[in-house]
């Protein structure tokens, strides 16, 4: 399975995402922000970092990059897309996911290993987890506080589209303790914490994050 990882100017965790895809058994394909070609990939990861320096608003400029036109179109046809941290911000800015990510309460950048609860296994990226499974992955962001209007929040909860929730109080003040959400069809998932940094206990707090990538690959293999 070919999984694309986009590099924007200022992307930082693209190499980590490529490694995670590889360790999960997928074939990573690097995608360039200025291209209009997804190179026949079967899924796309929009990685973390500070695309375009996060100037204007986090993710705002990247959401308008040529490659994102292709991602939005392909997502409309059901292409699985995973946005991590800055990638989540980009997906929100691109309109693929509702809500927005704002400055953390406390105003500090937060880099910390956190426990997350998998609230939905009905997405392209979480099918391999068990419901309510707790996983440990790092959070590292300055603008990770998920916000949305009451109607959107109620809808996300009602439709089971909250995919990851912080265990205990959300350190960034995210509404509803939301760490990650999915699109209506469950194909597009965005989360603030970094599963690609939790693929090997040598370099991360656990290997729990690999589950997102293996979920996708397993589903594809059994389909």
């Amino acid at each position: 399975m070919r999984i694309g990882v986009i590099t924007f100017p200022g992307s930082l965790d693209d190499i980590d995402a490529v490694r995670a895809v590889r360790l999960a058994g997928g074939e990573p394909v690097t995608l360039w922000h200025a291209d209009r070609d997804l190179h026949r990939v079967d899924a796309v990861v929009v990685p973390g970092g500070f695309s375009y320096g996060d100037y204007l608003r986090a993710g705002a400029i990247a959401a308008r990059a040529p490659i994102m036109d292709e991602v939005v179109t392909a997502a409309g046809r059901g292409l699985p897309v995973l946005g991590i941290c800055n990638g989540f911000q980009i997906l929100c800015e691109a309109g693929l996911l509702p809500g927005a990510l704002t400055r953390n309460v406390g105003l500090h950048f937060i880099c910390r290993d956190l426990r997350l609860r998998v609230e939905s296994t009905a997405t392209a990226w979480t099918g391999g987890f068990t419901p309510d499974q707790e996983i440990t992955v790092p959070l590292k962001s300055g603008e990770g506080r998920y916000v949305a209007d009451d109607t959107t929040l109620a809808r996300l909860e009602a439709e089971g589209r909250v995919v990851f929730r912080y265990v205990g109080r959300a350190p960034n003040g995210a509404m509803g303790g939301i760490a990650g959400i999915a699109s209506e069809n469950g194909r597009v998932v965005g989360l603030m914490p970094h599963p690609e940094h939790a693929v090997d206990p040598l370099t991360g707090p656990s290997a729990d994050g690999l589950g997102l990538f293996t979920s996708l690959l397993t589903a594809a293999a059994t389909r």
Partner: peptide
């Protein structure tokens, strides 16, 4: 906690460890 110690995925030790270790 205000510094990213994970980026690039090669950090095998960081504060509060006595030494930082990078692959």
């Amino acid at each position: 906690d205000q510094y990213d110690r994970y980026v690039r995925g090669n950090t095998a030790g960081a504060q509060p460890a006595d030494a930082g270790v990078v692959r």
